[in-house]
């Protein structure tokens, strides 16, 4: 860890301005990922701008739905009664991640900025395009159990490790951001990006943009009954997903009005595909139908050796998660 200066942001705008003028400055909130990365010299900011004193930790109703302040902790969000009642998929996904201690520190905004858990990204002794653009990808030919099978590129096969984001993707959340040049709203599907030939970029934000809140749309409440978050991993707690599935169904009797399926652990961003979800529109909740969704979602999937099993695992997990959701099993 290098030496760095530290300041507490007094206002969103000034914090954004400070980072926009200093490329080696970084925002810090819960710090549950950034500090680890700093200890391993993966991140070497010269200045940390601490956002935690900003008044952004509220969870409140708006005319659009429920708004999660960026500094609301993962724990407070998961156990918020409104979230539990109207967006239980989000609660379940958050509680599937990390540990109680980490969830107490981690913020909702920060969760979006988690960096990949690819082994090579963390180890300075090995090349990694995400850490050091142009150095090469060690994971493609190396040990890639945690790496992606969808939307990968020749320069990076890393995955986004969040559980929370998979649920947010399924719920079609929107993200409100403020930068040095003003405010804007980003669709969740456009927040993160695929690695392409710029794997060092995890998302489509500008460096000075700060997430201020996340909106859960009111119509997401339709999925409060038939949903599940299925997380498959190498131990029962405190492990990142090999594959996770956020499945949510809006059902009319036995007929599916609308389906949402998002995958975690398989790509550089939560993986959704509208055409796959549309296959279930007006259809019955049957295994055959679910298998079609799985096949569509995994279309073009590519394994790299130690993660090839994820293709089959993801298909089975999708069918299971949709079956559970249809049966009202969470």
């Amino acid at each position: 860890m290098n030496s760095f200066s530290y300041t507490r942001a007094q206002a969103v705008e000034t914090a954004a301005r400070e980072v926009s003028t200093n490329h080696t400055a970084k925002f810090i909130a819960g710090g549950t990922n950034l500090l680890d990365l700093m200890k391993e010299n993966v991140e070497r900011p010269t200045r940390l701008v601490d956002l935690t004193r900003l008044p952004l930790n509220q969870i409140e109703d708006t005319d659009k739905g429920l708004r999660l302040g960026a500094l609301a902790t993962n724990a407070n969000t998961a156990y918020d009664e409104r979230v539990e009642e109207r967006y239980p998929l989000l609660s379940k996904a958050i509680l599937a991640g990390a540990s109680a201690q980490l969830r107490n520190m981690a913020t909702d905004g920060g969760n979006l900025f988690q960096r990949t858990r690819c082994y090579y990204f963390y180890d300075l002794a090995t090349p990694c395009n995400k850490r050091e653009p142009g150095s090469g990808c060690s994971a493609i030919t190396g040990y890639n159990r945690v790496c992606g099978i969808l939307g990968t590129s020749e320069s990076c096969i890393a995955t986004h490790p969040s559980d929370m984001c998979v649920a947010l993707a399924a719920l079609k959340a929107t993200v409100n951001v403020t930068g040095a040049t003003g405010e804007r709203t980003v669709e969740f599907a456009d927040f993160h990006r695929l690695p392409g030939n710029e794997p060092e970029r995890d998302n489509n934000l500008k460096p000075d943009e700060i997430v201020t809140s996340i909106d859960l749309p009111a119509d997401g409440e339709r999925f409060a009954k038939n949903f599940t978050y299925l997380k498959l991993r190498d131990r029962a707690s405190y492990a990142f997903a090999l594959v996770s599935v956020a499945a949510a169904l809006d059902m009319d009797g036995d007929t599916i009005k609308e389906a949402r399926v998002a995958l975690g652990g398989v790509a550089h961003k939560p993986w959704r595909k509208a055409e796959a979800e549309d296959l279930l529109k007006g259809q019955a909740a049957t295994k055959v139908n679910f298998e079609r969704v799985a096949a569509s979602l995994l279309e073009g999937a590519k394994g790299y050796g130690s993660n090839t099993f994820k293709i089959e695992l993801a298909k089975r997990a999708i069918v299971r998660a949709l079956t559970m959701a249809a049966n009202g099993q969470h």
Binding site: D123, A125, T126, S138, G142, Y143, D234, R235, A239
Partner: peptide, 25 residues
């Protein structure tokens, strides 16, 4: 302990990725 034989290096060299049983197991 997973070796990347190209680097001759244990790659999961931390307790997040070297899994030991947790209470839930």
């Amino acid at each position: 302990s997973v070796l990347d034989h190209h680097f001759g290096r244990f790659m999961n060299h931390n307790l997040a990725e070297y899994h030991v049983a947790v209470n839930a197991d």
